[in-house]
Structure formats: structure tokens, C-alpha cells
């Protein structure tokens, strides 16, 4: 019997404190064969098990072109609280990868505009590094990354590499001016309006808190992006990850199985609860 709910055991091999409440965990499957067979696309997610507490879904935040599996976790509910107490050598369960991931073929040959807010950078980071690792397949890469304060910015060590890369622009912003802050100030939609990224031959990939997405979409439309060329990755409470437990649907589509990546055009035609 094949048990679709059975996780594989993985060991935490590194923990990095990103912000006061976000940590990035690097994982390695105990069973080497499982590790070898585990392949994924940027944008896909896994179900994390903490035995005795339950499961939670997290996107894989590093690129499949790099050789570890990383997930960034914000301390929120009971699973994430326990996870935050865990350290190198501790074991968790992992099943997946689930979801559609980003449409890599559609992105080829395009200018890419990444728009992230807070931990919304996690799924985008997987794709950003994937694109940098396959640099010739893409044109200009523009990253707009915002957080409430500079302390809430994630993956800080990678900004230098992104900034220095050829044909790449990184715009960092925080909501309010702070001492010693030399980058931009203002919420993400406002920054987009200032920098006016081109919509020509471009695809925008947006991920962040709902409020940021809500105000970012109209700005992108004003800049000339069509709904088909705006992608976002959604989150909802999920349990099974397989389209069966019945929670994460928007209309007849399940975020876990038909998403989490959707185009704005797709979402426009759907019945939203919220």
C-alpha cells in the first residue's frame, strides 16, 4: 500500500535567524535515495511534520539548482512555534513537493519583475536564484523587495550578489525612514510607481501580504502589465496538499494542487471568498 500522507524523515542541518520571528531551516533527507529522488520546481511547497504537533505547508525557498532544501518559517501557530525551538540535528518529517510551481517555460526570454513583501520573498527567492543560475534564459531581472522595517528584511546576505549581477536591479524599501537606512522608503506599490519598470516583454511575479498584493495589482495594470503577465503565489490553510481535505479552494481550484502559482487573469475569473 502506498501512503500518500507518509512523510520522509529529514534532519535539520542548518538554522539561520532571518528576523526576530523568521528562521530558515536547511534540511537533508535521512535516506539518501529519498534525497536523490526529490526534485522540485521553484514555487512548489512541502508539508512539514512535527510529530505530536501536526503538519504545516512551507514553500521551498531555495533554488533547485542549489543543493540543499531550505524553508523559511515565520513563528505563527503551534507547529511553527515548536519548529522555531528546534536545532541542528533535530528531525522533522517532509512530504512533497506539491503544487504547480512557476511556469518556467513561459518566463524564458522575458524581463522579470519580482515584487516581494516580507516573507513573501521566500518563494520568489527560489525562482530568483534559479533565474540567476540560468542567466542566459532571461533578460533584465528587477527585484523590488519591501518590509515594514529593515529588521524585517529576509535573505540579507544575498542582496549583494543580486545587485551586482549583470542586467539586474535590486530596490529595497522599508515603510518608514530609519536611521542609517540608505535605500528607498515607502510601501512597495509606491516604489513601483516611482521606478516604473517596463511592461514590455515582461512578467511580474508578486508575493507578499494580501494588503500589499491588493495595492500592487492596480499599479502594475497602470504600468501596462496585462493580467496574464502578472503571477502570484497564494496561501491558505492546507492539510493534505493533495486536493482532498477540502480547505484551500478558490472556486473549483485547489491552491495546493492547481496552485499555489496563479496568474492574475486566472484569479479574475474566479469566485473569491475574501
Amino acid at each position: 500500500m502506498k501512503n500518500i500522507y507518509l512523510p520522509h524523515i529529514a534532519e535539520i542541518v542548518d538554522v539561520k535567524q532571518e528576523t526576530s520571528d523568521i528562521k530558515t531551516f536547511t534540511l537533508r533527507f535521512k535516506d539518501k535515495a529519498v534525497g536523490k529522488a526529490f526534485t522540485y520546481k521553484p514555487g512548489q511547497f512541502v508539508e512539514f511534520s512535527i510529530f505530536g504537533e501536526g503538519e504545516s505547508p512551507f514553500c521551498i525557498s531555495n533554488s533547485p539548482t542549489r543543493d540543499s532544501i531550505e524553508c523559511s518559517v515565520k513563528k505563527m501557530g503551534k507547529v511553527t512555534q515548536v519548529l522555531h525551538e528546534m536545532d541542528i540535528g533535530d528531525e522533522v518529517g517532509i512530504r512533497g513537493p506539491y503544487g504547480n510551481g512557476f511556469p518556467l517555460d513561459e518566463l524564458k526570454g522575458k524581463n522579470l519583475l519580482f515584487v516581494a513583501g516580507g516573507i513573501g520573498l521566500a518563494p520568489l527567492r527560489s525562482l530568483i536564484n534559479y533565474c540567476f543560475d540560468n542567466r542566459k534564459d532571461y533578460k533584465t531581472i528587477t527585484i523590488v523587495n519591501g518590509a515594514r522595517t529593515s529588521k524585517d528584511l529576509v535573505y540579507k546576505d544575498e542582496y549583494k550578489t543580486w545587485e551586482k549581477a549583470k542586467d539586474a536591479h535590486l530596490h529595497l524599501t522599508v515603510d518608514c525612514q530609519e536611521d542609517n537606512w540608505t535605500c528607498m522608503v515607502g510601501v512597495v506599490p509606491k516604489i513601483l510607481e516611482e521606478i516604473k519598470p517596463t511592461c514590455k516583454d515582461s512578467i511580474a511575479i508578486v508575493c507578499g501580504p494580501p494588503i500589499m498584493i491588493k495595492f500592487t495589482l492596480p499599479v502594475l495594470m497602470r504600468l501596462g502589465f496585462c493580467p496574464e503577465s502578472i503571477l502570484t503565489t497564494l496561501e491558505m490553510k492546507m492539510k493534505c496538499g493533495l486536493g482532498k481535505c477540502g480547505r484551500c479552494n478558490i472556486g473549483n481550484l485547489y491552491i495546493c494542487k492547481d496552485g499555489p502559482v496563479f496568474s492574475y487573469a486566472q484569479l479574475n475569473g474566479m469566485n473569491y471568498d475574501h
Binding site: F51, G52, G54, K239, G246
Partner: peptide
């Protein structure tokens, strides 16, 4: 359904869209 842990075991049990905490 929901997936619920009890110590070292995991069970699947009925859940329903009429419950406020379902989503």
C-alpha cells in the same frame, strides 16, 4: 478531513466546511 497528531501517531478525521476554524 483533518490530520491530527496524537503523540507518535497521526489520524485522519472528519472535518467540515461549516466549522469556523476549518479555514
Amino acid at each position: 478531513f483533518d490530520l491530527v497528531d496524537e503523540e507518535k501517531k497521526r489520524m485522519r478525521c472528519y472535518d467540515g466546511c461549516s466549522f469556523p476554524d476549518f479555514t
